[in-house]
Write a protein that binds this DNA or RNA. Structure first.
Lengths: 351, 351
DNA sequence: CTGAAAGCGCTTACAG
DNA sequence: CTGAAAGCGCTTACAG
């Protein structure tokens, strides 16, 4: 069983070998394998011949001939960022379910690598691309740069000429502010990443919500690393106007802020309340638990693949932008402020 | 600039178009692009024509003709496991540096999906495969199953007929035991995953080290999920023979144990010392910090790619097994036991 | 339903 | 160094 019939071919057993074995033409083998119109008798012969020979179709040949790569590209900043880890898993699952492959690339937010990988996508003739662009490159892009559909994820300015799946970042940030206000906090600061559009949108949401509550915004922008957040937070905590509560725009920054708070000897939430984004493992495990906005990564990945498929079927359809909501997971880091002015009713509901 | 010369071809601009534009043959374009022997004059003409036409080579055609896919497969259990996240990033970096692509597949430890993806690797005609097999499939595998080199990572029984890169799991587990003994603990239990060879090796290391110290082993095996670990640990903590310290074989189980300890109201390290594997973010951030063995994921990924390349260059070389050491990161979860019998000198050094 | 033939876009001996 | 020709392994009109 499973005897390896070494044929003359260097390449192993090909469709012609199977055809010979089954006593049919290569065309019939091809049809039988792709579910084409073949009589049951021949189909059975072909299947037997495939099993006997251990034949595996050559995908490079199939792609070249059929002009379908059956491949989608996924270009993100860094797979080690838990948001992208989850996203890539969701995209891969959707893709493999649809019988497609995924090519994953990490740009590290480097425009040069970004350009390199976009070029690669062209060379692979991907059927479509799911892309989380840097802010710089997003403005450069237009549809004519690509001969395949592109779906932006996570980062997409309103009005960009692409299908997109994003979180409602403004609403999510506002949700955190509302929650903090409801819990009695007033001097609420913000720390946002300055390189991605996501950080900017979350900042806008924060500023808007603070305004609606009649509170004064105080935010700072940092490079998207734990180290930068640590430095900025440490400096801030040393100032007289240190905030009572902090809204932080992603989990990397959150790590930096947490370490800075500990280094400064600040207790949560008594000395500092903390609220952020991404329901990473550690935000639950740390004491007293960090209040965060959880992003629906599975939905985001699935929706992105969905938009891609629909675009492939109907290239001329109007642009679509799927906006998903985050879920606020309340934990100990934003417990009710004990010195709260109980008379001050928040002007907006928590949700 | 960058004018899209739409040619008659449906497929976009091909090598023949470039050749016509440059006034040379397709063969010369091919040579110029692949760094073959071409005069400087013609090379410049070709480069200009490529720029002018926006030509991008079709990788499917190149692969079919050259019989090199320039692709390595990476088959792991789940990219969301932080060990595999780091590994995949390391492998991808090595691969892209060498001008190769990576195809990533998540098996979820499911033998059926494993078989499916191994078949896919054949169809892609990958140049090589980096593979973390389940225990079940590892015994099934032999070299003749593949027509490309395979390097096992993370999981590889001694004696398997493949190149492999693994952690010295026995030494690492022993290191944790030695450390706990040196800190004064004696009733040291173990919790190990039962599905992977890794868990078994770590258990062996634990048992051996306990024996050398003249201590009695007490370990339990569980399914590799946080839930299973939680259930088992919760039950154990309720028993009279509850351990003073616990060695846990991976970070998923560690999460379960930590939650169970908290639910049982056990303080670390006073009521329970904890030591595990994988220097995941949260092990540092949690109070009082968990002592763990850090795996050199970058080294593991790089070494695996290295073994693959060497095997491709020299198919007949003897099998190689690279065994890397973990680094013990000591944190508060294994602080000196205050009630330690100070007379009992550990029989082995901590390292 | 089936087969013979053409061709996807490249690379690579082969000959000069 | 250069070009004409063959061919990698498939799929797909085309004809029957």
């Amino acid at each position: 069983m499973e005897k390896k019939q070494k044929t003359i071919s260097v390449t192993g057993v090909g469709i012609k070998d199977v055809a010979r074995l089954a006593g049919v033409s290569p065309a019939t083998v091809s049809r039988a394998l792709s579910g084409g119109p073949v009589s049951e008798a021949l189909r059975a012969q072909v299947e037997a011949a495939v099993r006997a020979s251990g034949y595996r179709p050559n995908l490079a040949a199939r792609r070249l001939r059929s002009q379908h790569s059956g491949t989608v590209g996924l270009v993100v900043a860094d797979i080690r960022n838990p948001f992208f880890t989850g996203l890539s898993r969701a995209v891969e699952d959707s893709a493999y379910q649809a019988g497609m492959r995924v090519i994953l690339c990490n740009t590290d937010e480097d425009p040069q690598r970004e350009a390199l990988y976009l070029r690669l996508m062209q060379e692979e003739r991907v059927s479509g691309l799911i892309f989380a662009p840097t802010r710089a490159s997003m403005s450069t892009l237009d549809q004519s740069s690509f001969e395949f559909p592109v779906v932006l994820v996570d980062r997409a300015a309103t009005g960009v000429p692409f299908d997109a799946v994003v979180l409602d970042n403004r609403a999510a940030a506002a949700q955190l502010v509302n929650h903090l206000v409801a819990r009695g906090y007033r001097r609420i600061g913000g720390l946002f990443g300055k390189t991605s559009i996501t950080g900017a949108e979350r900042r806008d949401g924060y500023v808007g919500a603070m305004q609606r509550h009649g509170l004064e915004s105080a935010y700072r922008l940092v490079a998207p690393t734990a180290e930068a957040a640590y430095a900025e937070a440490a400096a801030w905590f040393a100032e007289a106007t240190r905030p009572q509560a902090l809204v932080v725009s992603n989990s990397l920054l959150l790590v930096g802020v947490l370490k800075a708070a500990r280094a400064a000897g600040l207790c949560m939430p008594a000395d500092l309340a903390l609220a952020g984004f991404d329901n990473d493992n550690w935000t639950e495990l740390v004491e007293p638990g960090i209040t965060v906005i959880e992003q629906p990564v599975d939905d985001i990945g699935r929706s992105a693949m969905g938009l891609l498929f629909e675009r492939l079927q109907e290239p001329q359809r109007p642009l679509r932008r799927v906006v998903l909501s985050g879920r606020c997971i309340v934990r100990g880091s934003t417990a009710v402020l004990e010195t709260a002015v109980t008379g001050a009713v928040p002007q907006e509901a928590e949700r």
